[in-house]
Nucleic acid binder design. Structure first.
Lengths: 352, 352
DNA sequence: TCATTAAATGATACCGGTAACATTAGCGCC
DNA sequence: GGCGCTAATGTTACCGGTATCATTTAATGA
């Protein structure tokens, strides 16, 4: 029944698989390596050879196998990004900038969400390393000890985003959350506000929120203003949490003259709550936010907020990674893309 | 100077590289393949061998190379998703659901944005195939001819999301945009509205928007209501575009009794514009949206809208892909996750 | 007792590309 | 003419895992 002859190592294990570079080479009448050269650097092959290969590729519909390429060349065209959540639009904008910058350089984007957990971030760093990305983007400058160790030990460019206050592990792109918050509060004080409430995301596992809170305290302290503990609140990233925080603050601390929401998810929620409660701003209480969501320009009156370069951070991050991958070791290690306080009608304005 | 002896094929080309499975094997005193077995299926190795390997992995901090694994096993643990844009929160929610579902199964997510261009989508399908993903997720059921051909020809599960009207190329998960829009308009008509405006995203390259518009026309026609061409508008996905559309409609068509924005990005913009113009809803004009953004519940009065299972689509998509990858060929090909019309105060309510 | 079978483990080739080196041809120049 | 040099192309081994088949060991049973 079974024929005794034993095939001596058949050549192709996967007859259903895709076309290989060898098939294209055969079609073009050259060797596989020449096709490889043409694909990666057309200038390296003679013009007529290149044309033969090009038409062989076109006719056959060959699509290269980047997995094989990655293994053989020891470099992939994938960049990994770990963000807290894609549903917060500041990170969606970051990812968009990153994606645009990477696509322009033939790279793909692998993303994962840590859910604002540093433990989870650390696990994701490991699983991302397993994919052998060409570069790694993380959020913030604080990580678990083991996470930071992993980031230090890998031999690919690592980019921390959204905060530039500390010395980067490798590179960072963002702005100073402390300064931005400090300047906002300082401006409010100059505008005549004295009793200023502060609402931010929970500061656990979130150095950006932590720096913003520190900026608030520092500005208050510098002006010699006392901060009542109840003025400072946590609220998770959700519009309704901002609404809840505003409700609690105005009920429990009617003395407040202004409320600074250190995220526009929260400030928009706060504005909605004001409208529901018929609280007028800036007349009854000044309201300001952080992030410059598109919506902040459309409330009535529009919201004072901090414009941060969300898309630009991603785009710059991509550029920095690409430069490093191209061997440019002169890339700046810490890039501060700045911020801008946008004064609009939801608060009184500082003089001048 | 240079020693004449020629090393006969040195074993390791990349001494700076990461630990390999062979290193772990040596540490544990077993062969590489046994370590591989332990990693992929611990039950396949003896208990004490497994323990030795486990501690060797732990001590050495070995992180597997998924690129090599992908090449050798001809299957990667990466799923590719192509969405129009990550900055529209409906797709951010989709991606979030997808990401959660994939992570639970040890898979990673590769994303790319097509910018609502089918041409770009087609290019991205090609570059994604080059990465040899385990599965591919796209948006909508309409693609370029070549794009559809590619999707049909690949031998991995393909999942079309957010629309279930047509026969899927392989699988689809979503809901009927036509029905959802039809039911919303039908409800408005039952609530007594006759002159109803319609604002949606541009329908070019966007079958979801196209179906929603068709649903509007069908419901109007069924009720014997005439549609004035000027009542139907395009607006790109941006809050200010929704605001602009509302402004134009109320100025040019003051006869309109209700305006249906077929996206909550647009409806929220419309609401903001109403507040600025002191237009009351539902008193002056009924306003309703589509998507059920969190914010729609917080406007004053809250917005009538269509709740769609954004996160669930992504999560279900992941589950369907994983089932197929596990060899389950009984997976449903077309999964309709439904929708719900949420009647709130921004429109009059249909009877009962 | 020894063949039979299952469980555990190992040896080897291979996945589809590319790095490193080899080879060939063509050219300039002394 | 021969040498050196460059441009174009080919040969071979290798990237770090796993599929496949082989081998060893232990357990089972007539």
């Amino acid at each position: 029944m079974t024929s005794p002859e034993k095939k001596p190592t058949q050549r192709r294990k996967r007859p259903g698989g895709r076309l290989q570079i060898r098939d294209v080479a055969r079609l073009a009448g050259v060797s596989a390596i020449t096709v490889s050269r043409y694909i990666n650097n057309p200038g390296k092959v003679a013009k007529d050879t290149g044309e033969k290969i090009a038409s062989a590729i076109k006719e056959s519909g060959y699509i290269p196998n980047m997995v094989a390429k990655g293994l053989s060349s020891n470099r992939t065209n994938v960049v990994a990004a770990i963000i807290p959540t894609i549903t917060n639009s500041i990170f969606a904008d970051l990812v968009s900038g990153l994606s645009d910058g990477l696509e322009d350089n033939g790279h793909r984007l692998l993303i994962a969400e840590s859910g604002y957990s540093l433990e989870r971030e650390m696990e994701l760093i490991q699983t991302m390393i397993a994919q052998r990305p060409a570069g790694l983007v993380v959020t913030g400058q604080v990580h678990t000890e083991h996470g930071a160790e992993l980031l230090r030990s890998i031999d690919i460019p690592v980019l921390e985003t959204f905060e530039t206050g500390a010395e980067p592990i490798d590179m960072c792109a963002g702005f100073s959350n402390f300064d931005a918050s400090f300047q906002m509060v300082k401006g409010l004080i100059e505008a005549g506000y004295r009793k200023i409430g502060f609402v931010s995301a929970p500061i656990a596992s979130n150095d950006r929120a932590t720096r913003r809170r520190e900026g608030y305290f520092a500005a208050m302290k510098e002006a010699g203003l006392n901060v009542v503990p109840g003025w400072v609140r946590d609220a998770k990233f959700a519009f309704r949490e901002g609404a809840r925080a505003l409700g609690e603050l105005v009920e429990q601390h009617p003395e407040l003259e202004a409320i600074f929401f250190a995220s526009d998810v929260l400030s928009i929620g706060g504005v909605m709550e004001c409208q529901r409660r018929k609280i007028r701003f800036p007349e009854d209480v000044g309201i300001c936010g952080f992030d410059d969501f598109e919506l902040t320009a459309m409330t009535n009156p529009p919201l004072t907020t901090v414009r941060i370069p969300r898309y630009e951070i991603g785009h710059k991050a991509a550029a920095m990674l690409m430069a490093r991958l191209n061997g440019d070791e002169t890339v700046e290690r810490s890039v501060d893309l700045g911020f801008e306080i946008v004064w609009r009608g939801s608060t009184r304005l500082p003089p001048q």
